[in-house]
Write a protein that binds this DNA or RNA. Structure first.
Length: 288
DNA sequence: CGTTACACCTGAGGGC
DNA sequence: TGCCCTCAGGTGTAAC
């Protein structure tokens, strides 16, 4: 579900609600694919800690704790981080399922992490239906191979650097954009949208993209991500911002999940192809 | 090293 | 209604 804009919107909305607060109690779901650090160890380490920072690297969030430990978080495809009790029609549905409204509360099997604070509600919740999300505790000074592999943050996409990466690749340009080691934060929606804005067909081999096009592409990656952050991200199926508001960027999509619809620029029919096992959408007339 | 297929997990929606 | 299929915003790993 979440790409860089959704993660950044989550970070910005969450930060004022959690930074400076002290964790009073922790409830974790059972051990699963989701927990890189075993839940019992995680719960023990978080209790009594103050949250001092919340940063983003690509699609990862890093929560800094008072004693120098950090919590690495990834939302995967269906992860939702939010303050308990946030209100919106959409979140009410989540809350109903999650047992966060009404009484007595029924435990939601998809909420894997619940933090309560010493100064009272609202607590922080991490819900993730598919469990592709991740949580890992990092000791003070400890790094993580996932973070080490990340390329430049996509909000700082650099055209020259993109071009030099593209020269070495025979894979489609779309695959290059999705490579987190090249540009950290771009996912399926924004790769398609940036390629549309630049007039490049996602299937084109990366090494057939000119320097000039790479410069433009990097600019458009920044532009589309920035615009999406401004509109609160994309809420296509289940992204809910921590304040309970839906993002609005899905209303500005030009190609993603618009197969069969008319291109907004030339009225040709948007097509869908599969690249690297991911759906890709483009306008066959505007994109070459 | 680069590329590709597949696995991980759950739910929604379409066709019959 | 039930069943079976495909699809979903991601990423780690194995094999060529």
């Amino acid at each position: 579900m979440p790409e860089l804009p959704e993660v950044e919107v989550t970070r910005r909305l969450l930060a004022p609600h959690v930074i400076g607060r002290v964790i009073h109690s922790v409830r974790c779901g059972p051990p699963s694919y989701f927990f890189l650090t075993p839940p019992r160890r995680l719960a023990a380490a978080l209790g009594g800690q103050k949250i001092v920072s919340l940063e983003r690297q690509g699609k990862y969030l890093l929560m800094g704790l008072g004693d120098g430990q950090r919590v690495l978080l990834h939302l995967g495809m269906t992860g939702q981080l939010f303050m308990a009790g946030a209100v919106s029609p959409r979140l009410m549905r989540v809350a109903d399922h999650a047992g966060l409204s009404g009484s007595p509360p029924t435990r939601d099997r998809h909420t894997h992490l619940e933090l309560e604070f010493e100064d009272g509600p609202p607590g922080l919740r991490f819900r993730d239906v598919r469990k592709f999300g991740k949580v890992r505790l990092l000791a003070p000074g400890q790094g993580d191979p996932r973070l080490d592999k990340l390329g430049v943050d996509a909000l700082q996409a650099d055209g020259e650097q993109l071009f030099s990466a593209a020269r070495k690749r025979s894979a489609p340009i779309k695959t290059l954009l999705l490579d987190q080691g090249v540009l950290a934060g771009v996912g399926n929606i924004y790769a398609d949208e940036a390629l549309f804005m630049t007039g490049i067909r996602p299937t084109r081999g990366a090494r057939r993209v000119s320097r000039k096009e790479c410069l433009l592409l990097a600019e458009n990656v920044q532009r589309v991500l920035t615009r999406s952050i401004e509109t609160g991200g994309s809420s296509i199926s289940d992204f809910v911002a921590p304040d309970g508001q839906d993002g609005q960027f899905q209303n500005e999509r030009q190609v993603y999940a618009r197969e069969g619809e008319a291109c907004g620029r030339c009225a040709a029919t948007i097509v869908r192809v599969v690249i690297g096992q991911r759906s890709s959408h483009y306008c066959p007339r505007c994109q070459r």
